[in-house]
C-alpha cells in the first residue's frame, strides 16, 4: 500500500511540469557551478603539483558542489512538500485516502517514499555529472559516496519536516513559507556555529551534513538524521490522526 501511494505521488509530480522544471533548473545551476569549479581546478593545477599531498578532483570540485546543492535543495524541497497534505486537503482528496482501508501511517510513509525517490534522482543526476570527470582522472569514491549519502539524508530530513508542516495547514503556500522559515532558521544556526563546540554544533543539521561531505561518517550524524526523520514522520502521523479525533 505504501508503494501504491508512493507511485501515485511520483506520477502526480512527473505528469505536471513542476518536477521537470525543478530537475532542469537545478541541473543547469549545478552544471554551471560544476564547470566553474572545474575551471578553478585547472588553473590551480600547476600550483597543486608542487604540494606533497595535493587535494584532488573530489575535494576541489565535488565537495563544494554538494555544499551548494544542500542550499539549493533547502529552497526547492518546500515547493514539493507543500503540496502533499495541504493541497490534498484543499482539493478534498485527502478524504479518498482516509476512507480507504489504509492506515494513516501508510499514507504518510507512501508520500515520504514518493518524495525521497524524486530527490534521490536529483542526487543521482549530480553524481552522474561527477562521473564525467573520470574521463580525465580518478575520483575519490569514498568521499563521493559519503557526500552523496549526506546530501540524500539531508533532503530526507527536509522532506519529513516538510510533510509535517504541510499536514498542519490547508494552504499550500503557508506550508511552503512555514517550511522555508524553519529551514532558513537551521541555516542561520549553521552560520553562527563555531567549528566544534557549543550546543549549536550538535543541533545544526548542516554541520552534520558538512561532516558527511568531508568524508566523515559519524554515528552521531547518522543518528541525528535518522532521529530527525523519525521525529517528524511520527509528528505527521499524529497530526493527521489528531484531525480525525479532534478536528
Amino acid at each position: 500500500m505504501i508503494f501504491t501511494i508512493a507511485r501515485k505521488e511520483l506520477y502526480m509530480m512527473f505528469c505536471s511540469p513542476l518536477a521537470w522544471m525543478l530537475l532542469t533548473s537545478m541541473q543547469l545551476l549545478f552544471a554551471w557551478f560544476f564547470l566553474g569549479r572545474l575551471d578553478a581546478f585547472l588553473q590551480l593545477q600547476p600550483q597543486l603539483m608542487q604540494i606533497a599531498n595535493p587535494p584532488g578532483f573530489t575535494e576541489i570540485i565535488v565537495t563544494p558542489v554538494f555544499a551548494l546543492a544542500a542550499i539549493v535543495l533547502l529552497l526547492m524541497t518546500p515547493l514539493l512538500t507543500m503540496r502533499q497534505f495541504a493541497e490534498e486537503r484543499k482539493s478534498h482528496t485527502l478524504t479518498l485516502l482516509l476512507s480507504a482501508p489504509v492506515s494513516v501511517t501508510e499514507v504518510v510513509l507512501g508520500k515520504f517514499l514518493g518524495l525521497i525517490v524524486f530527490f534521490m534522482s536529483v542526487v543521482v543526476l549530480i553524481v552522474a555529472m561527477f562521473l564525467t570527470l573520470l574521463a580525465g582522472g580518478t575520483l575519490d569514491y569514498g568521499l563521493l559516496i559519503s557526500g552523496a549519502s549526506g546530501l540524500f539524508l539531508l533532503t530526507c530530513c527536509f522532506v519529513a519536516l516538510g510533510l509535517y508542516i504541510s499536514s498542519l495547514t490547508i494552504q499550500p503556500v503557508i506550508a511552503a513559507i512555514g517550511m522555508l522559515g524553519v529551514l532558513l532558521g537551521f541555516w542561520v544556526l549553521d552560520l553562527v556555529t563555531s567549528d566544534h563546540e557549543g550546543w549549536t554544533y550538535y543541533v545544526s543539521i548542516f554541520k552534520q551534513f558538512e561532516l558527511f561531505n568531508n568524508g566523515l561518517i559519524d554515528t552521531f550524524s547518522l543518528m541525528y538524521f535518522l532521529l530527525f526523520m523519525l521525529f517528524f514522520l511520527v509528528l505527521t502521523i499524529r497530526s493527521l490522526d489528531g484531525e480525525r479525533l479532534h478536528g
Partner: peptide, 17 residues
C-alpha cells in the same frame, strides 16, 4: 473500511489524472 464505498459532498478527484 474495506466494506464501505464513500462519495463525499465534494468528490475527491485528482484533476490532473
Amino acid at each position: 473500511k474495506a466494506h464501505i464505498g464513500y462519495l463525499p459532498e465534494i468528490p475527491p478527484l485528482y484533476l490532473d489524472m
